[in-house]
Design a binder for these strands. Sequence first.
DNA 1: TAGATTGTTAATCGATTAACAATC
DNA 2: TAGATTGTTAATCGATTAACAATC
Lengths: 206, 206
Amino acid sequence: MNKNGISMAVIKRLPKYHRYLTELLNNDLDRISSKDLSQRIGFTASQIRQDLNCFGDFGQQGYGYNVKELLNQMNIILGLTKEFKTIIIGAGNIGQAVANYGKFEKLGFNLQAIFDTNPKLIGIKIRDIEIQDIDFLDSFLKEKHIDIGIICVPRINAQKVCDILVNNGVNGIWNFAPMDLVVPEEVIIENVHLSDSLLTLSCLMS
Amino acid sequence: MNKNGISMAVIKRLPKYHRYLTELLNNDLDRISSKDLSQRIGFTASQIRQDLNCFGDFGQQGYGYNVKELLNQMNIILGLTKEFKTIIIGAGNIGQAVANYGKFEKLGFNLQAIFDTNPKLIGIKIRDIEIQDIDFLDSFLKEKHIDIGIICVPRINAQKVCDILVNNGVNGIWNFAPMDLVVPEEVIIENVHLSDSLLTLSCLMS
DNA sequence: TAGATTGTTAATCGATTAACAATC
DNA sequence: TAGATTGTTAATCGATTAACAATC
């Protein structure tokens, strides 16, 4: 269980619903049945109906689901109707890649600042945002409310950075460092462990 | 079920075992009990014993597990004792970040080539590998056996690139494009859907 | 109305946890 | 030997699938 009693298994499927509903809308489809969606998305029709019913009665018997309405609901469920202020800590390869990924801005994630330790990077601008010295991270956070910290620093520094974020009220962490961070239970962590992902692939191929 | 009857739930935990065992070895620990590992890694002791027993009897009653031996076994299970030849298709932000990530080489993933469509990128070298025109992808694959294709192209081109890879015998795909690729069932796909991950975070925070 | 499809309950399946005999 | 800890079976828990009455 998690978040109003919705299981993690369900939550992990929601972004995929969002992705497919967006595609349906782009293809000008007005409505979709659980059976039809099932064939596209690869979940069973039964599972789709159960998943959606965790959040409300969005469908209509004999008709199915209205694509536009369902996508609107999904936007609300996923928190995409509000803006999140974000910062990136670590402007190496991954940090820069995330900073340059314009799609996130469109979804409502506003990048407010980028920090690094490397003197060669400090002062350089990425998409109009100047990379700052990480020494200013703490004071920056004391002045400005930030929702999500995106940790792209090396493993060795990740917990230290994380502590600074959490101590200054940052409640969401998107962690690209290859380790498990320790945080109070009210703080939400979402990990992107690239090497874990690659090892899963090589395991399945072996 | 999957891969010799090992469930996906188990497989997804294996990289984490690998990560923690590596750390234990770096800390010069000779042995570890399931109970002790449980406290560090966050799985139950029971689950750890069950997971490991999918692959063999690596432990010893009254003693626990030998860290070095268990890590060796984990390396074999994860396919890290052999080399994988890889190529990256798409040398944008993500493609470059992956190309520059030295850790993967150490794990046995040998980057053989990088492809892109952008004339401004073609010819540039990343870690001694010159970015080639994607028009040469097909003929390159016909000459050289590649195990894993790393797809970092925009969504719109991802399936096309994937088809070229699969038609030339590439059996593993590490997919960074935000979509689900269609492949024959013998081909293994591991997705890194960054936007799905970010949406999961924002959902949990909402 | 008749057909289609939902919402929801019950049945099944799979994964996790608990328990304990085996044994180092 | 006595204590510790595994490997493994049984019990529990949770997630998925099937079924169908409700109803658009």
